[in-house]
Simulated assay, not measured.
Amino acid sequence: MLNLLLSGHTNTKIFQVTADSVLLGIHSSGGTTLYRLLQTFGKVTIAWTVESPIYGKHRLEWDFDEFMDQNKMMEKIMSDLKQYQPM
Rank of each mutant, 00 (worst) to 15 (best):
S21T: 05
T49Y: 13
I46C: 04
M74I: 12
M74A: 13
F64S: 00
F67K: 13
H27Q: 12
T40M: 14
W48P: 00
N71R: 09
G8E: 04
T10D: 01
S29L: 13
P53W: 07
N71L: 08
G8H: 05
K72P: 00
T18E: 11
D63E: 11
T12F: 02
F41R: 11
T12L: 06
V22A: 03
V17Q: 02
Y35M: 06
I54V: 09
M73W: 06
G56W: 08
D69C: 14
T33P: 01
T18R: 02
F15H: 08
G30Y: 03
L60D: 11
K57E: 01
N71E: 12
T32D: 07
A47T: 13
R59W: 10
Y35H: 08
E75Y: 11
L23F: 14
D69F: 15
K76E: 15
D63V: 07
I14P: 08
G42C: 13
T18G: 10
F15A: 06
Y55S: 07
R59H: 13
G25Y: 03
P53I: 04
F67T: 10
A47P: 00
F15C: 11
L37G: 00
V44L: 08
D20M: 04
V22Q: 06
G31R: 01
I14K: 11
K76P: 02
K43N: 05
M68N: 02
T45A: 11
K76Q: 15
E61I: 15
A19R: 14
D63W: 07
Y35S: 01
M68Y: 02
A19V: 15
P53F: 13
W62V: 03
V50L: 08
F15W: 12
K57S: 05
